[in-house]
C-alpha cells in the first residue's frame, strides 16, 4: 500500500497544489454543503465535471501502456451518446439505450483494435480514422440536430444523484476501481506492460499480444461509451457536433500528468484519474476566478507546462514529492545494445 502511495505522490502533490492555487483565487472552493439532499460545492462540481475525462483516461491509460494511443475517444463519445439518446427517444427503454450505447463503444474499440493488432497500422493513424469519421456517424444518428430526450432514467446517469452524490462521480469511481482491480488482481496489468515495453520479447515469451491489444482498445471504447452516455445524460440530449470534442487530448494529458510514459510500459490507472482531476480543477478554477474567456486556454496551458516541467525526471529529483518515477531501465538497455 505504501508503495502505491509513493507512486501516486507526485499526482497527489500536484492536485493539492492546484487546489491551493484555485482556493487562493476563490476561497470557497473546497466548501461543500448539502442542499435539497444533495452535495453542492465547487469541489463537487470538479468531481462531477471531471467524469468524462476521468473515464476516458482510464481506457487511455491501458492503450498508452501498450505503446499505443486512442485519438478516437471523443468521437466515440459522440456516437455512443447519440445511440443511447436515439434509443430512448424512440421509446426503446433504458436497458436498450445502455446496451446500444455500450455496444457502439465496444464496436468502435474493436474496429481500432483490429486495425492496430491485426493490420499493424500505427495506433495514431488507425484511431485517427474513427476520430474523423466518428462525428459523421454520430451526426447520421442524430440527423444533424441535438437529439433531446426527457427520459428520466437515462438522465439519471448525468444529472441524478445517489444519496446526495452526483451519479457521474460514482460512475467514474466504480469504473476506475473496477478496471484498476481487473488489471492488478489478474495478470492483465503485467502482460499489458510487457507488450508495451517490448512486444517482440513478450510475444516470444508466449504473451498473446494481438488479443491484448484488441482488448485495450475495446476497453478504451467502452470507457468512451460510458463517458458519452454521461455527457448526453447530463444535458438530456446528444450533441453530435460538440460531445467529447477535443476530450481525447485532455485524456492523453491526464495520462501524462499521471506519470505513464507515452512510450508505453508501467502505468497507473489511479494516477491517470488524479491527472484528470488536476485538469478539471484547473478548468473549473478558471471559470470560478472570473477571468475574461480569452485567457482560459493560456492559463490552462501555462499551468500544464509548469506541472509537466516539475514532474520531468530531469528536474524532478531536486524537488520533494516530484520526480519519483524511476529512471527508465530501457535507456540502459539501449546503451548496451550498442555493444554489438
Amino acid at each position: 500500500m505504501s508503495q502505491g502511495l509513493r507512486r501516486l505522490a507526485p499526482q497527489l502533490v500536484t492536485l493539492a497544489a492546484v487546489v491551493a492555487l484555485v482556493s487562493a483565487f476563490f476561497p470557497g472552493f473546497l466548501a461543500v454543503e448539502i442542499a435539497d439532499g444533495r452535495l453542492v460545492g465547487s469541489a463537487v462540481d470538479v468531481l462531477k465535471r471531471g467524469a468524462p475525462v476521468a473515464l476516458l483516461a482510464v481506457g487511455m491509460t491501458l492503450v498508452i501502456a501498450t505503446r499505443g494511443i486512442d485519438l478516437s475517444v471523443g468521437a466515440v463519445m459522440a456516437i455512443c451518446g447519440a445511440a443511447s439518446a436515439w434509443a430512448v427517444s424512440n421509446g426503446l427503454g433504458l436497458g436498450a439505450a445502455l446496451a446500444l450505447g455500450l455496444g457502439a463503444g465496444l464496436l468502435c474499440g474493436l474496429w481500432n483494435g483490429v486495425l492496430v493488432a491485426l493490420f499493424g497500422i500505427q495506433p495514431i493513424v488507425a484511431t485517427l480514422i474513427l476520430m474523423v469519421a466518428g462525428r459523421g456517424v454520430a451526426q447520421m444518428i442524430t440527423e444533424g440536430r441535438i437529439l433531446t430526450f426527457s427520459h428520466e432514467g437515462l438522465a439519471f446517469f448525468g444529472a441524478g444523484d445517489v444519496v446526495g452524490v452526483p451519479t457521474p462521480i460514482l460512475i467514474w469511481i466504480v469504473t476506475g476501481v473496477a478496471v484498476g482491480l481487473l488489471v492488478r488482481r489478474t495478470a492483465l496489468g503485467l502482460l499489458i506492460e510487457a507488450i508495451g515495453i517490448n512486444r517482440p520479447a513478450s510475444a516470444l515469451a508466449g504473451v498473446n499480444a494481438r488479443v491484448l491489444l484488441i482488448a485495450v482498445y475495446v476497453a478504451s471504447g467502452l470507457c468512451a461509451a460510458i463517458a458519452g452516455i454521461v455527457v448526453a445524460a447530463d444535458i438530456r440530449g446528444a450533441d453530435a457536433n460538440n460531445a467529447g470534442l477535443w476530450l481525447e487530448l485532455d485524456a492523453i494529458l491526464a495520462v501524462v500528468i499521471g506519470g505513464t510514459s507515452l512510450l508505453g510500459g508501467r502505468f497507473s490507472v489511479a494516477a491517470s484519474i488524479l491527472g484528470a482531476l488536476v485538469i478539471q480543477t484547473i478548468d473549473t478554477g478558471i471559470l470560478l476566478a472570473g477571468f475574461p474567456s480569452e485567457f482560459n486556454l493560456v492559463i490552462k496551458a501555462g499551468l500544464v507546462v509548469i506541472i509537466l516541467v516539475l514532474q520531468s525526471p530531469r528536474l524532478g529529483p531536486g524537488l520533494p514529492g516530484f520526480g519519483l518515477r524511476a529512471p527508465r531501465a530501457a535507456g540502459v538497455a539501449r546503451t548496451e545494445k550498442a555493444t554489438e
Binding site: 476563490f26 453542492v40 462540481d45 465535471r49 460538440n242 460531445a243 473549473t284 471559470l287 470560478l288 472570473g290
Partner: peptide, 24 residues
C-alpha cells in the same frame, strides 16, 4: 461573462461555476 462555446454542455458547466461563484 464566460464562454460556453455555443454548446449545451458548455452552457451547463459554465452556469454551474457561475452559481457557485455567485452565492449559489
Amino acid at each position: 461573462s464566460q464562454t460556453g462555446d455555443f454548446t449545451r454542455s458548455g452552457g451547463k458547466e459554465v452556469m454551474e461555476s457561475f452559481l457557485q461563484a455567485e452565492g449559489g
